[in-house]
Design a protein around this nucleic acid. Structure first.
Lengths: 187, 187
DNA sequence: CCTGCTTTTTATCATTTGTAAAAAAATGTC
DNA sequence: GACATTTTTTTACAAATGATAAAAAGCAGG
């Protein structure tokens, strides 16, 4: 997915402001399995997923809880690093080989203070992440495991083919065994 | 809680910008039980809780799921209204008599486009809500019901005295009966 | 201080979900 | 195509949670 499209989907920027941002963006490629964001470390870059799939998870004892799955166009960030310059809870790893756009947070922060359009772009960026996060949270509260799986199925049928069911189960808040049972019942 | 403090906790504004916002803010009082945000309706104001407690919930069949409890200083908004001018999932009602600051979203939006400091304030506002929402979401994923209750207990001991346990149970993702069992076991 | 109403706890039973281990299926590599 | 590895499903049993109903406790208004 093209960078211009990603930037503009968040907030329509004047050409000059968009070019200002793009001057600081570079492209990087990482292989499947690479951990791009490390929990408990401050991450100094923001990424946008050009292609591929990633997942965010939190370690909990000897297991991991997957709480976000991102695909092409999605921002890949350590929220707490981005917002507070503090270590975050989440690790993010790549479920496929991925190409990402990246920009140093330092550069972005500077642009926020220089250009009101970019400041409003940053506002819209946070707002759209906020909406998505709230939606995800409410969705996870609502309904039984079966309903949540059905919802996932209808909203992200593509992910079902590309993401191991163990991660999807964790995302839905159940065990892989439980998810397997649900899938068997529905069929 | 004073409006200046609430505004500045989000982002330190120059005096002039802060006065610009305050010119549009008024104070309102509502009684316990009043529903201030209605699900599936577009809400055209943003509120900040000067005093009291509120809860956000989503209707689900014949029951309600409480997914947020806000106390003094907290912003009270319909996310989807604020961000997208669209009806939201959540209703918010008052658990105590409350005093709130309020500003029309229309006025705030205009200020965002006029004043870069206010634009960045708006960015920080969304970002801080984002962090809190993510934290809440992850926290709800993590651990058993007992652990989640213990976490709630240590993070918001005051709310335990002021919020009916039924709402807290729903917030933790369990039934009131389950919560009661947990409380009995811990003692 | 009593009365009625709401909230919380307790008890019982049915159901769901988790754990652990093994079998089956799918995937990738040589 | 055969092997090793990973992923998914299945099974059996244990533990946790939900539903329902009833008792107990707490609280507000007169």
């Amino acid at each position: 997915m093209d960078l211009d499209i990603i930037l503009n989907q968040i907030y329509a920027l004047p050409r000059a402001s968009r070019e200002l941002i793009k001057a600081y963006v570079t492209e990087v490629v990482y292989p499947k399995g690479h951990i791009i964001i490390h929990a408990n470390k401050v991450e100094r870059h923001v990424y946008f997923l050009k292609s591929g799939i990633v997942r965010a998870y939190a370690d909990h004892g000897d297991s991991q809880i997957t709480f976000w799955i991102g695909s092409e166009g999605a921002p890949v960030i350590s929220m707490n690093s981005y917002v507070n310059n503090r270590p975050g809870y989440e690790s993010i790893d790549l479920l496929e080989n991925c190409t990402l756009y990246t920009i140093a947070m330092q550069d972005l922060q500077r642009l926020f203070l220089q250009d009101i359009h970019i400041a409003n772009w940053g506002r819209k960026f946070a707002e759209s992440e906020l909406i998505k996060t709230e939606e995800r949270m409410i969705s996870r509260h609502l309904g039984t495991a079966v309903e949540r799986y059905r919802r996932f199925l209808s909203q992200s049928p593509d992910l079902l083919q590309r993401v191991p069911l163990g991660y999807i189960a964790s995302y839905l808040g159940i065990t892989q065994v439980s998810l397997s049972r649900i899938r068997a019942e529905i069929r």
